[in-house]
C-alpha cells in the first residue's frame, strides 16, 4: 500500500519535472509542425492526398514519441546519480525497485500526455483537410503509446549499467531492429541451414517485435482492424516491458551509488 504511495510520489515528481522543463514543449511543437507539413506535401500530389497527409502525421508522432522516450529515458536515472539527488531519496524507506518503477511510470505518463497532444494536432489537421478519421486511427495511436512503454523500459535497462551515450545507441538500435525483427525471422526461416533457422528464431524471441505496433498502414488505408490486432500487441507490450523492468531492477539493486 505505502509502496504504491511511494511509487506515485516518484512518478508524480517525474511528470512535474517534465512539465517544468521547456525542452519537451519545444519537441512537441516541432512534432506538430511536422504533422502540419503533411498538408504541404499532400498538396504537391494529385492522388491519395489524405493518405499522404496521414502517413506523414503518424510518422511524425511515432518518431517524436520514440525519440523523446529514448532521450529522456536514458537520462532518467543517470541524471539523478550524476546530480546526487539519488542519495537523499534512496536513503529513505523506499526500495530501489519502487524508485525505478516510479521513474518509469512518471516518464510513461509524460509521454502519453505528449502523444495525446500530438494526436489532437493530428485530428485537427485531418479535419481541416477533410481526411477521414476512423477507429483505426485511435487504435494506431494507442499502439504507439504501447510501443513507447516498451522503448522506455529498454532505455531504463540499458541506462542501469551503461553511459547515456551507449544506452541511447543501444536503445535506438534495438528499436530499429525491433521493427525489422519480423522480416529477419521470415528471411531466416527460408534458410537451408537448420542452425540459421533456429538462431534467427531465437533472436526474434529475445528482441522486441515492434512491427506489430504499427497500424499506420491499416489506418491510413482504411483497412479493417480486428480486435486481436490491438489486443495482442498490448498484451505483448505489457509482458515485454514487465520482463525488461525486472531485469533493470535486478541490475539497479546491485549497483553502487558513489
Amino acid at each position: 500500500m505505502s509502496g504504491i504511495e511511494r511509487i506515485l510520489a516518484i512518478a508524480g515528481n517525474t511528470v512535474r519535472e517534465a512539465i517544468r522543463h521547456r525542452v519537451l514543449y519545444t519537441l512537441v511543437f516541432f512534432a506538430l509542425a511536422l504533422i502540419g507539413t503533411g498538408v504541404l506535401l499532400a498538396s504537391l500530389s494529385y492522388v491519395e492526398r489524405e493518405r499522404i497527409l496521414q502517413d506523414v502525421g503518424f510518422a511524425a508522432i511515432r518518431v517524436f514519441a520514440v525519440a523523446i522516450a529514448i532521450f529522456v529515458g536514458i537520462h532518467l536515472v543517470h541524471r539523478e546519480v550524476d546530480r546526487r539527488t539519488i542519495f537523499t531519496i534512496l536513503s529513505k524507506p523506499i526500495a530501489r525497485s519502487e524508485f525505478l518503477l516510479g521513474k518509469y511510470f512518471g516518464l510513461l505518463v509524460t509521454l502519453w500526455l505528449q502523444i495525446a497532444v500530438m494526436g489532437a494536432g493530428f485530428v485537427v489537421i485531418s479535419m481541416l483537410a477533410g481526411a477521414p478519421l476512423e477507429v483505426a486511427h485511435a487504435a494506431a495511436l494507442g499502439l504507439v503509446a504501447a510501443e513507447v512503454a516498451v522503448v522506455v523500459s529498454v532505455a531504463l535497462l540499458f541506462s542501469a549499467f551503461t553511459t547515456p551515450m551507449l544506452a541511447s545507441l543501444f536503445t535506438a538500435g534495438l528499436w530499429l531492429i525491433g521493427h525489422l525483427s519480423r522480416d529477419l525471422r521470415a528471411l531466416g526461416a527460408q534458410s537451408e541451414s537448420d542452425v540459421v533457422r533456429r538462431a534467427t528464431e531465437a533472436v526474434y524471441r529475445v528482441l522486441p517485435d515492434l512491427s506489430a505496433f504499427d497500424l499506420t498502414v491499416h489506418a491510413a488505408r482504411g483497412l479493417e482492424i480486428a480486435a486481436s490486432d490491438v489486443v495482442m500487441p498490448l498484451a505483448y507490450a505489457f509482458g515485454y516491458a514487465t520482463l525488461v523492468l525486472f531485469a533493470a531492477t535486478w541490475i539497479f539493486e546491485r549497483r553502487d551509488f558513489r
Binding site: 515528481n13 512535474r16 519535472e17 517544468r20 522543463h21 546530480r83 546526487r84 539527488t85 542519495f87 537523499t88 536513503s91
Partner: peptide, 11 residues
C-alpha cells in the same frame, strides 16, 4: 541522512 554537499531537484 544529510549527504556531503547535498543537491536537490532544483525545479
Amino acid at each position: 541522512f544529510l549527504p556531503e554537499a547535498p543537491y536537490f531537484y532544483d525545479y
